[in-house]
């Protein structure tokens, strides 16, 4: 059950990410990123993070990606054109990413024996457990993030406003 769900949603994640890389039109990339984020929410649920799975759907695939699609439609972004810079990026981009991937995969596989195996329901962080930690030990950072978001809202309004 766990294995099947992991493979289905892991494959959806990979397909969405590859589609993001290969599509030339930003709106197609944005829609495939929504697929990636929604299937990541299922993987969070499998790893026992129920609050984060809900927050992933609401904040990421809900709020952030809607903002992205709005901006793409507002700016009427078309297909990206090929330039001289993109040829250089191909030469640097693919080997660099492949080298990073092989390094990371080698690290994880060589330490595979030290990692546990995840079972569904073995360790589930409930929302009350998470919020107890957030509102007692980490109250100050939590309050500081609310100020951060307020500043971000003001900054976004100030930046996007039309100048007269």
């Amino acid at each position: 059950m766990h294995l099947a769900l992991f493979f289905i949603f892991g494959a959806l994640c990979l397909a969405g990410a590859l589609n993001l890389l290969l599509q030339r039109h930003p709106i197609n990339s944005a829609l495939s990123l929504i697929v990636v984020m929604s299937s990541l929410a299922v993987l969070y649920l499998l790893l026992g993070a129920e609050f984060l799975a809900a927050a992933q759907v609401i904040v990421y695939s809900g709020a952030i990606m809607v903002l992205f699609t709005f901006v793409i439609m507002l700016l009427n972004a078309g297909k990206e054109e090929r330039t001289r810079g993109s040829k250089l990026a191909y030469i640097a981009g693919f080997p660099g990413a492949a080298a990073l991937l092989s390094l990371l995969t080698f690290m994880f596989l060589s330490h595979q024996g030290e990692f546990a195996r995840a079972r569904i329901g073995e360790y589930v962080v409930t929302t009350s457990e998470l919020s107890r930690m957030l509102f007692t030990d980490l109250l100050l950072p939590f309050e500081v993030t609310s100020v951060l978001i307020l500043i971000a809202i003001l900054g976004a309004v100030a930046l996007a406003r039309k100048e007269h």
Binding site: C13, L14, A17, L21, E80, T83, Y90, G93, L104
Partner: peptide, 15 residues
């Protein structure tokens, strides 16, 4: 790791 590397490649390649 695979998702991160696809992100790195897209960051470098996308114009």
């Amino acid at each position: 790791a695979i998702l991160f590397c696809i992100g790195v490649a897209a960051f470098l390649i996308k114009r």
